[in-house]
Design a protein around this nucleic acid. Sequence first.
DNA 1: GCCCAGGGATGCG
DNA 2: CGCATCCATGGG
Length: 283
Amino acid sequence: MKYTLKEDKIIINCLDDFNISDILECGQVFRYKKINEFEYEVFSKDKKALVKQNNIENNAIIYTNDVEYFKNYFDLDTDYNKIKLNLKKYNLKFLNDAINKFGGIRILNQDIFETFISFVISSNNNIKRIQSIIEKLCEKFGSKINDYYAFPTFKQLINANENDFREIGLGYRTKYFIKIFQQLKENDLNNLYFSNEKDIKKQLLSFCGIGNKVADCIMLFGYKKSTSFPVDVWIQRMYNEYFDKDEKDREIISTKLVEKFGNLSGYAQQYLFHYIRVNKTLL
DNA sequence: GCCCAGGGATGCG
DNA sequence: CGCATCCATGGG
């Protein structure tokens, strides 16, 4: 990926593997604001970036006061051209179609705590409402920075009570959060960063409100484990349509897809997830 | 009013 | 173990 780092911006010199709309709207992240199809604001932890994409000049510019952070956030040193070529070797028409249409997706390197909290909220919920809840969470508990709110820190959330959580619309997940923050007092999520997949998943599954699918999302989006293949309702429908119409056990589906795609699993999952959700008539 | 959403916990056999 | 049921909330 060709890019240039300046003091206050990153210039993406080619859009073959970068499309800001697809990157942000493919369901991996919830904190962004669409200005128009080619201009987005994106928020991570206490940081913010403005991304302007220019399809005519074939470039994009990421404006930020922390270029190192967003260089890593947008995963700019990973070769997505190579990933897509390797995925195309599987010769699966619907996967190739997904890649051809949404080849500008990149898997963001998101903060672990923020990813953890966000995907607990995601369970049995829809993306629009997840975004709304997370926005209220930031406004209620996060630090105000200029014209926006940071994602709250563990310390800012640890003393929240049931009412605080219910007010922002967490509903029945409120009791998950009460338990989770007790568990987090004795558990530093960042300590798991250099552990292997099995150990991380085992730890994640020990939290209340985290099952296989949410754990896989945290592994993929927070711990950068591309051998994770999260299976939600949409991936299950895709699997039932293109692989095995009778398999209903999502954990088994995930296991079989990881056996197939190995360390390309997370990338394949994201191209497919976005493709089928945008084009529901395929199912 | 019903169905669904990037599911998970709980209880029952 | 597998399976059914319940869970808050808002949009379609």
